[in-house]
Nucleic acid binder design. Sequence first.
DNA 1: GACTACATACCGACCAGTTGGTATGTAATT
DNA 2: AATTACATACCAACTGGTCGGTATGTAGTC
Lengths: 206, 206
Amino acid sequence: MQARPSQAREKLLTSALSVIRAKGFSATSVDELCANAGVTKGAFFHHFTSKEALGVAAADYWSEFTGALFAAAPYHDLADPLDRVLAYIDFRRQLLAGELPDYTCLVGTMVQETYLTAPQIRDACHASIEGHALTLVPDIQAAMDARGMRDAGWTAESLALHTQVVLQGAFVLAKARDSVSVAIDSINHLKRYVTLLFSHPVEKAA
Amino acid sequence: MQARPSQAREKLLTSALSVIRAKGFSATSVDELCANAGVTKGAFFHHFTSKEALGVAAADYWSEFTGALFAAAPYHDLADPLDRVLAYIDFRRQLLAGELPDYTCLVGTMVQETYLTAPQIRDACHASIEGHALTLVPDIQAAMDARGMRDAGWTAESLALHTQVVLQGAFVLAKARDSVSVAIDSINHLKRYVTLLFSHPVEKAA
DNA sequence: GACTACATACCGACCAGTTGGTATGTAATT
DNA sequence: AATTACATACCAACTGGTCGGTATGTAGTC
């Protein structure tokens, strides 16, 4: 389909994932990205019309990457929907290995810098987070239905988003403390919350 | 005590709070900061040795600002420690008014960009978050002690940090969605969690 | 209270290096 | 020959930061 298969684009996107997660989007220069990827500036602007366009493409690339990662994860194999949700949380905790830039979230980092100045990047980050969160909704809803939780005062979607809130916040505090332990603690709190939600008798919404 | 009271420094710090929260630290230039504050570049570098030094000063300024805000907040007046913790969460939810840059956290935004490249800023951000979280520990601990919760499997400090995790994460998702509602939902989940933690019979740690 | 000595607060022109982006060329594939 | 995928050279604007200078104060001395 192409004269030469595009290697530069892939290399630039791969570099973008690591460099932007380490330094942030604004502080990452096009030159630095090119150097890290081992390509020239001409190649960069051949594949991306602007730095902002690369940001959008990087967020999309991140969505594909994480989509494949979680689709192949083992937590889907469990029979009970609540077990799957809890195993998802365990899986997220297991992912916290290596150095900070290796396990933090690209789109969570980018959206903080760009939500006002680059709406297209913000939208791509939003789609990435939202898309991932929505994969949890069917299991949460099934667990609620199995227990006849109708008027719980919260929705499956809001709990799915809350898991992402905890994870994003955990990354922020992990960066501030330069330590993963606070993130692990918070994920444990999250798992305890979900367990309590489904073990407690249903309370009437206020 | 001084020849002329330094107006430029104060104006620069005030500007820094709003501009950095809107655009991020890296994307905020010294020139822009000066223009926003109505001072010259000479004044900037008279008061701050570098842009990074301003970042540190802004984080410290933020700590003072928020310290005064929460010290004067009404949730301290309640008699029961658990009520104080829950009222703190309510207070945080009430603060989510106005536009996004008005209620988001300066140090949470800054630390994401600087945790690897500017350790001094990271440390100042860390101190700000940590210092605030620690103000919650005595009330949480008192609530635990009142219920004889010894081996709960979590500590007062970890729960205090978890509240900050939820808040920071809520800001991230609010920016991504350009909507405050997801933040409110997550704070409600947090309050529900704390309520459940203290209403549930103590479980043995695994 | 006038003079000296000095400190602080601020100004704005200027600098070298970097920024995102462009214009033009070339080599391989179809 | 046309298209794609790069490479090289280059640019105007902007970056953080410097520097000489000025205006305005305070403190001590006489």
